[in-house]
């Protein structure tokens, strides 16, 4: 569950997109945020699970929460 006081700075819809678009869009979105801001990404690409984790490790933007359901994958990134 999302913490009640968690503020989502930006929502990104990557549903229907295939590799590598969700990563490219996530990068672009997170670049425009301030350090500490939270970005929520929703995708339908099952490859996102591994790829978003790799993106997080390489770029230092932490995944603070992730969930999946109904063929959708949701990631909350905190900009590092």
């Amino acid at each position: 569950m999302t913490e009640p006081d968690l503020v989502i700075a930006l929502d990104l819809d990557c549903r229907g997109m295939n590799c590598p678009l969700p990563i490219l869009k996530t990068k672009k979105a997170i670049t425009g945020l301030a350090t500490g801001d939270v970005l929520r990404v929703v995708s339908t690409d099952p490859g996102s699970i591994a790829d978003m984790a790799a993106f997080s490790r390489r770029t230092g933007n932490e995944i603070i929460e992730q969930s999946e359901g109904a063929g959708e994958y949701t990631f909350l990134f905190r900009k590092g």
Binding site: P20, I23, L24, T26, K27, A54, F55, R58, T59
Partner: peptide, 9 residues
């Protein structure tokens, strides 16, 4: 190339 740049390479 596009993904590598997104991964700060």
């Amino acid at each position: 190339a596009s993904t590598a740049v997104a991964l700060d390479m």
